[in-house]
Design a binder for these strands. Structure first.
Lengths: 241, 241
DNA sequence: TGAACTAAGTAAACGCCGTTCACACCGTAC
DNA sequence: GTACGGTGTGAACGGCGTTTACTTAGTTCA
């Protein structure tokens, strides 16, 4: 009956507990406080025991990042459901606002996942979507598939076409790798261009706001953020909401 | 004659050497390799001696960040001189391209200065322009003062006016704190809005590119970056270069 | 010139850290 | 019941930031 043995249950429970304590340490005291010894201390075991679960501290942090991404994606999906609108623009806005809201509420998680210089710089040639833009892709992808109207009006500059065409393949394979079916007609250069623009602006604003790195102290960036959304919508040929 | 004593000369030399070795370690091996002991080792002294120069490792890294910002600002100013054009748009483009180029060539420095979660999150109320947007302000400020035409065409959304008005004061004081004289007419809500937009997009694109965090692998982001510049210029009411 | 003072550097130590290794333990499987 | 493999331990290594007491050497001033 029990396909899972006692040991497997215990192992799963311990692994979960490790990640929970690691996450708590991250939230409460920041990335540097997520030490193997601290986690082990809270679990009532010794540090070397953690090596039965993760190859290194780096490994654990990577896994933690993935978990956080999953949480974020789940939260954004939830908001998308709860808003319950079929309007394309409303959905996109919901995701963008949700992302900003999440980042402001979880600055340390955001820093770990979205601003860690861990990724090797001149890195590998293959697609690197590990624990980052996959969230963006996973949410925006279906939206793009649903309404290819995104980027229907403002077309990408003519001379950028070939450049984006190659990216088009990479994007398609990234989507399929994520298990998302994308109709080819939704992946024209314009769509790719638009997607990149959304992501860069959204990320830029949110990162600057979370890190308090605007050139001066912005008291409330809500308005600025909304104006950015309006701009994007306008440029994408979607009516103002 | 020698107002500076022998000790002062030695001290200054040692301090310089410390920063040089720290910088080298950062460039070659990353932030984590910038340890007090490693620096001391290379200097042929012991680690505690460094405490005669810096209060802590954190202090040293902060100072290093400031140095890097100075270098960056100098480099951008140099490019601005060497391009030798009076065209406003050309100057702005030069700065933006220079910033991207610098970031790609100095990823570790970029990460230290522009993507370190060091800044306390919910931080202090005062202006925080420490070692970050000051570069942007310092370069773009004079450009804004010179040609208030920036943001002359595309006006900020009407409802964002009051919001930006308060930022206007903060921006003015930030400029004066940087020793930059800004004519008040160059600091209207539109200008502030435009400045923030430039900074957020520039930062967003560059950070994503440096960290390789676009949702998929962008082979050459040159074209995309240029299209972003074109967009910004277009929106700011400046003709294409 | 020589004595008082000050700043730079040292050695030792404390308490962290990640990681490795030999070893004990116990659930599992034959 | 015995052999095996996964789980946790304890000790240890080397490295880290930082503190403290101490030596050494440059400066200052009578």
């Amino acid at each position: 009956m029990a396909e899972v043995t006692r040991r497997e249950r215990l192992r799963a429970a311990t692994e979960l507990e490790i990640r929970q304590h690691a996450h708590r340490l991250l939230v409460q005291q920041g990335q540097d406080a997520v030490t193997l010894r601290a986690i082990a201390r809270e679990l009532g075991i010794t540090a070397p025991a953690l090596y039965r679960y993760y190859g290194s501290r780096e490994d654990l942090l990577r896994r933690l990042g993935k978990d956080i991404c999953t949480d974020l994606a789940t939260e954004l999906d939830g908001k998308l459901d709860s808003v319950g609108s079929d309007d394309h623009l409303t959905k996109v806005f919901t995701v963008c606002r949700g992302f900003r809201q999440w980042a402001l509420a979880h600055p340390r998680e955001f820093a770990l996942v979205f601003a860690s210089p861990t990724g090797e710089i001149g890195g590998d040639e293959q697609i690197r979507q590990d624990e980052f833009g996959s969230v963006f892709l996973g949410i925006l992808g279906p939206l793009m598939a649903e309404g290819a109207s995104l980027a229907s009006s403002e077309q990408a500059p003519a001379d950028i076409g070939p450049e984006l065409a190659t990216n088009q393949e990479a994007l398609a394979s990234a989507f399929s790798h994520e298990g998302i079916e994308m109709p080819p007609e939704a992946l024209g250069p314009d769509a790719v261009h638009s997607l990149l623009r959304w992501w860069a602006r959204l990320y830029g604003h949110v990162a600057l706001e979370v890190f308090g790195r605007f050139p001066f102290d912005i008291r409330k960036a809500d308005r600025l953020f909304e104006s950015i959304l309006s701009e994007l919508a306008h440029e994408a040929g979607l009516g103002e909401s």
